[in-house]
């Protein structure tokens, strides 16, 4: 039960951000929600199913461009974001069906290559995406700075709540059971009647949907996207690190990991600008070597128990 309590506290805590009236704090909270969506989504395929996907940025960019292009055509925000989710589901299902026969490093590299490929397509499809010049996304209406910040915060927050609910339902359902079997012994899973291709593809497609919707919200939030920005490799790596912080396999862990990461990154950025990425690197190295099961295993470490990677 405790994970539901943690999730409730996190969501309520984040929702308090607008009450402060501080746009900076709201920006950070929006960013935290965005990454939490991505980390929880990654956990579906990377944590639950055990396929190390590095394709998160592909779906983020796909969603950002789908929604952004629709917005330039005058489509309303909720519709364009829903469309981003649908497009990502279909594309992820196709990619997943093809690539999920690969395992381990091969799968990781194939998904990474998808990010590169989509970025290059966005770069060259100038008519549609504006290419390297980027794409300006019109504002829906002049709301004023704070109202607009609130709008996008709640859009991201709502998306996080939706993602969290879907992830928890999946984890508890027959689908989650099947994914867990596939992670532990795929051959044996097939042999007891699990259609592993179907379930893996479903997990991969679901992991793409919310990431793409977050990309859609992001595009409207920042009003301008370019391929290097929304297909950034860091958008692929950070959610993995966040899930590691929270302990791979738990969606609530991934969400908490995302918030911890964003908060830590901001503190480091503000205080040690020149060395920020190095310090983040040190943190990642320390995490992998000393707390491979996430912050949740800290109490084991402190009690002197062995924590092997």
């Amino acid at each position: 039960m405790s994970k539901y309590i943690i999730l409730g506290v996190v969501l309520v805590g984040l929702a308090a951000a607008p009450l402060t009236g501080d746009t900076y704090l709201m920006r950070m909270a929006t960013l935290a929600c965005m990454y939490a969506v991505m980390a929880a989504s990654w956990n579906l395929i990377g944590g639950l199913t055990g396929y190390p996907s590095f394709g998160t940025a592909a779906f983020f960019g796909l969603g950002a461009y789908t929604s952004g292009i629709l917005a330039t055509l005058g489509v309303a925000l909720p519709v364009s974001i829903a469309a981003a989710g649908v497009v990502a589901f279909v594309v992820a299902a196709i990619i997943g069906f093809i690539l999920l026969r690969l395992k381990g490093h091969y799968f990781a590299i194939a998904t990474l290559a998808c990010v590169e490929l989509l970025r290059e397509i966005a770069n060259s499809a100038t008519d549609l995406t504006g290419g390297g010049m980027g794409l300006n996304i019109p504002r829906n209406a002049d709301l004023g700075i704070f109202a607009e910040a609130s709008l996008f915060f709640f859009a991201m927050w709502g998306l996080l709540a939706l993602t969290a609910v879907v992830c928890l339902v999946v984890e508890r359902s027959k689908i989650g059971f099947a994914l867990s079997c596939i992670r532990q012994a795929e051959g044996a899973a097939e042999m007891i009647g699990i259609n592993s291709t179907l379930y893996k593809t479903l997990a991969f497609a679901l992991s793409g949907v919310f990431v793409a919707m977050a990309g859609g919200v992001y595009a409207s939030w920042v009003h301008y996207i370019e391929p290097g920005d929304v297909f950034d490799i860091l958008l692929t790596i950070k959610p993995v690190v966040m899930a590691l912080i929270g302990g791979v396999g738990s969606s609530v862990g991934a969400i908490v990991g995302a918030i911890v990461y964003i908060a830590a990154e901001e503190v480091i950025w503000r205080n040690y600008l020149d060395f920020s990425s190095g310090i983040i690197g040190l943190t990642v190295v320390g995490l992998v070597l000393f707390l491979p099961h996430g912050l949740g295993s800290l109490h084991l470490r402190l009690r002197g128990k062995a924590v092997t990677p």
Binding site: G46, G50, P52, G104, H105, A108, I237, V240, V241, L244, V248, F275, S276, S277, G278, I280, G281, L282, T283, V284, V285, L287, V288, L289, P292, T308, P309
Partner: peptide, 26 residues
């Protein structure tokens, strides 16, 4: 460094070299 995670799932060694790379890049 890497010998310590060599037996662990692929994800950990990959993340470790990524973290080290961040330090070198910086």
């Amino acid at each position: 460094l890497i010998n310590r995670v060599i037996a662990a799932p692929v994800l950990l060694s990959l993340t470790l070299t990524f973290g080290l790379d961040l330090i070198i890049q910086n």
